[in-house]
Amino acid sequence: MQPELKRKTSLFLVFFLLSLLVTVGTVQAAPEETISVSMHHYILQPGSKGMLDVKEIVVVNNQGAEIAAGAGKVKFVLPEGYQDLIFAGGTEQLVEAKGQELVVTAAVPKGESTYRFGYLLPAGAAPHFILKHRLPYPTETLFVLTPLQGVSVSSTKLVDGGVSQEQQARIYMADNLPAGEQVDMVVTLGAGAAAGGVTQPPPNPKFHNPGHIRLWYQSPFKGINAHLFMVMVIGVPLAGLIYYVFKRRQMGDALKAKGDPEEEMFHRLMAREKVLLQKIGELDEKRANQEVDEDTYRQLREAYKKKLVNVKAQLKEFTG
Rank of each mutant, 00 (worst) to 15 (best):
L189D: 01
G81K: 08
F318G: 02
G192M: 11
A303Q: 15
F207L: 02
K312A: 02
R134N: 07
M251L: 14
E181L: 13
L276G: 03
V153S: 05
A123R: 04
P261D: 07
A174C: 11
H267K: 13
G111T: 05
L228N: 03
Q63G: 14
L142N: 00
Q168L: 10
G320R: 15
E166V: 12
A288K: 14
P261S: 09
E33P: 01
F129G: 05
P109V: 05
K132E: 10
A194Y: 08
D293W: 07
L13M: 12
S36V: 07
N209F: 08
Q168W: 09
K312T: 02
N310T: 11
A226F: 09
F12M: 12
A174K: 04
G118F: 05
L158N: 00
R298S: 11
V159E: 08
V236T: 07
Y217E: 05
P79H: 03
A68S: 15
L215K: 15
F207Q: 04
I171K: 02
T188C: 05
Y243G: 00
M265E: 12
R248L: 11
L148D: 13
V37M: 06
A193T: 00
K6C: 08
L238N: 02
A65K: 14
P202H: 04
V58Q: 02
L102T: 01
E291N: 01
L241M: 11
T199A: 10
P261Y: 06
D293A: 01
P205Y: 03
P31C: 05
Q168C: 02
F143S: 03
G81W: 04
K316L: 13
M265P: 03
Q83C: 05
E263A: 14
M173L: 15
L131K: 06
S48T: 15
G192H: 08
L85D: 06
D175G: 15
K256D: 11
E32V: 05
V231W: 14
Q2F: 09
V183E: 05
P202V: 04
V198W: 00
G252T: 08
I67G: 03
M251N: 14
Y304I: 05
P136A: 01
L145C: 03
Q218A: 13
V24R: 02
R272W: 03
P205H: 10
L44D: 04
G162F: 03
E302F: 08
L78G: 00
V108E: 03
A97Y: 02
Q165R: 13
Y304L: 11
T319L: 14
G259Y: 04
L52D: 04
V309E: 13
F143V: 02
D284V: 09
K73G: 06
K286G: 00
K279T: 04
V309D: 15
R170I: 09
S219N: 08
Q100D: 10
T156D: 15
Y297L: 06
S154H: 11
L148K: 13
P46H: 02
G252L: 10
Q299T: 15
S113L: 05
T188R: 04
V27E: 15
A71H: 06
F12T: 07
M232Q: 14
T114N: 08
L277R: 14
L102S: 00
I57E: 09
L283H: 06
P210V: 04
E317H: 14
Q250S: 10
H41W: 15
K258D: 06
G192S: 06
V151K: 03
T156C: 10
V103D: 07
F129K: 01
